[in-house]
């Protein structure tokens, strides 16, 4: 095995009783790389990252982190990982500073070293002026940032981020992104799960899309968009049978939702002008294809949960 791999998973499976939450998936992450795991609710993202974090023992398969087996070396693996779980689990009995300090003790970091590092981290996530606040007194965005700061206390070689920005307002999300981009510049790779396509596109070099316990596709954002959608999307919001027949005759990829029609295409201008003139005028638009198009195309449009 190439020991440039930070994570290596082969036929990784997790069952809860008879329910298969992760079904024989294969993937890897290289040193310094940032991998995004996308997928609808219940796809198995959290279960996957919880196995990587040595929280849950896999039911079957190989899973190595830093070239160490999660079955045998959880302590060693966890001492080098920075783990930011999906649910905030900051200590409500302690204030902001103490949260980081008590956490540093679990890693056996010397007090003087920890104190310096915590000051730095609080500055890094913009919480220096909240040192003595208790967790109930700080906002959701601040909690998330504190979670990230906490996961950095041990100067991890690699980060595990499970939905780091879910539920945050745009300002807070951007702040979290800035922190992660800065870490990436310093060479700290991560695995990140998210529902936000823009987040995945911005932060991750490579993506995995999971659905129903399986990995359905894998690749860079550009590759996925080009392969499954093409360059452009034409959106039509006044669908009629004439348009539909016309599109079908053109032999292009398209999808129909209850109120719109989406046409996926590489050739743009002339085709778009033709549709616009013939059928829909201002009720249709041309835009670049996005990861969201890929996601919805591959995982379907029905609601989950």
């Amino acid at each position: 095995m190439d020991n440039n791999f930070v994570i290596y998973a082969e036929n990784l499976t997790k069952k809860f009783n008879d329910f298969v939450a992760v079904d024989s998936i294969n993937f890897f992450v290289k040193k310094g790389e940032s991998l995004g795991i996308l997928g609808p609710n219940g796809a198995g993202k959290t279960t996957t990252v919880r196995m990587i974090s040595c929280f849950l023992p896999p039911t079957a398969g190989i899973l190595k982190v830093f070239d160490l087996s999660v079955y045998r070396f959880p302590r060693q693996i966890k001492s080098r990982l920075g783990i930011c779980q999906q649910e905030d689990n900051l200590d409500p009995d302690l204030n902001v500073y103490q949260n980081l300090f008590v956490y540093s003790r679990y890693f056996d970091i010397k007090r003087s070293v920890a104190e310096k590092r915590i000051d730095y981290l609080l500055k890094f996530v913009g919480l220096s002026n909240k040192k003595t606040s208790y967790i109930r007194e700080i906002s959701g965005g601040m909690k998330r940032r504190l979670m990230i700061a906490r996961s950095l206390v041990n100067e991890p070689d690699f980060l595990i981020l499970d939905e780091p920005t879910t539920g945050l307002d745009p300002q807070a999300r951007n702040q979290v992104w800035d922190s992660l981009i800065e870490l990436k510049k310093k060479g700290t790779g991560f695995v990140l799960t998210t529902h936000y396509m823009d987040e995945a596109e911005k932060l991750c070099e490579r993506l995995i899309i999971m659905d129903q316990a399986k990995i359905i596709v894998e690749g860079t954002p550009d590759y996925l968009i080009n392969k499954y959608i093409g360059k452009y999307v034409i959106e039509i919001s006044n669908i009629s049978s004439e348009i539909e027949n016309f599109i079908k005759s053109k032999n292009v990829n398209f999808e129909k939702t209850s109120s719109r029609m989406l046409i996926f295409t590489d050739k743009s201008e002339s085709f778009f002008s033709e549709i616009k003139e013939k059928f829909c005028g201002s009720l249709c638009s041309l835009r670049l294809a996005t990861l969201e198009d890929v996601f919805l195309k591959l995982t379907g449009r029905e609601l989950r949960d």
Partner: peptide
């Protein structure tokens, strides 16, 4: 309620 054990499990402790 506080998920303190979960938090500690993210560290080298078992």
């Amino acid at each position: 309620h506080q998920k303190t054990f979960d938090a500690i499990l993210s560290t080298p402790l078992l």
